[in-house]
């Protein structure tokens, strides 16, 4: 971590730091991960902080929770350049990138009003991840832009 955001967002003792998130997407990162603070997690968020790599970036720190690769891979939909740092006793013990998953479930809502997933059925949304977008596994609708707008909150 560089000094610039340490000044703005305090270090965590143990947990996960999601860095290099596209500016403005931090709250969507939390929404995708289903982190809303109701579980009592200590969460710090930096939005549009200066970054050498991205000019402006967001950063999310979750205290006391180590997110698995499967949990964070879904972030590739909105933050493909995000880096994941697992912190223990103030040291970064693991650092990795997000990988694009084949499928994301229960994260996005299909924008097609005629899709069966929008009809009150007991069905979990499922999208195949394409090279340049996502595709509803039920109605086949392809979304390439504004995927963050589909996040099921």
């Amino acid at each position: 971590m560089s000094d610039d955001h340490q000044l703005r967002v305090s270090k965590i003792k143990s947990g996960t730091v999601i860095d290099h998130v596209v500016g403005g997407q931090a709250l969507n990162v939390l929404a995708i991960l289903g982190i809303d603070g109701k579980e009592g997690e200590e969460v710090s968020v930096g939005i549009n902080v200066p970054s050498d790599r991205l000019a402006r970036k967001d950063i999310v720190k979750v205290e006391g929770r180590e997110l698995s690769q499967d949990e964070v891979d879904v972030l590739s939909l909105i933050a493909p350049d995000a880096t994941i740092n697992i912190v223990r006793d103030y040291d970064v013990v693991e650092k990795h990138r997000v990988d694009s998953p084949d499928v994301v479930e229960d994260v996005l809502s299909c924008p097609n009003p005629d899709c069966i997933t929008a009809a009150g059925e007991p069905v979990t949304s499922r999208f195949e991840v394409l090279e340049d977008g996502v595709r509803c596994s039920y109605c086949g609708t392809i979304v390439r832009e504004s995927i963050a707008d589909l996040i099921d909150t």
Binding site: N112, D114, C115, I116, T117, A118, A119, E121, V123, C136, S137, Y138, C139, G140, T141
Partner: peptide, 26 residues
């Protein structure tokens, strides 16, 4: 069924063969 993807979803709930005879504009 009038909804797209209805047959896909329905097939996940049954064990007998299911034939899609039209799912909306699908």
């Amino acid at each position: 069924h009038p909804k797209q993807g209805a047959a896909t979803m329905a097939s996940e709930f049954v064990d007998v063969p299911l034939l899609n005879a039209g799912d909306g504009a699908g």
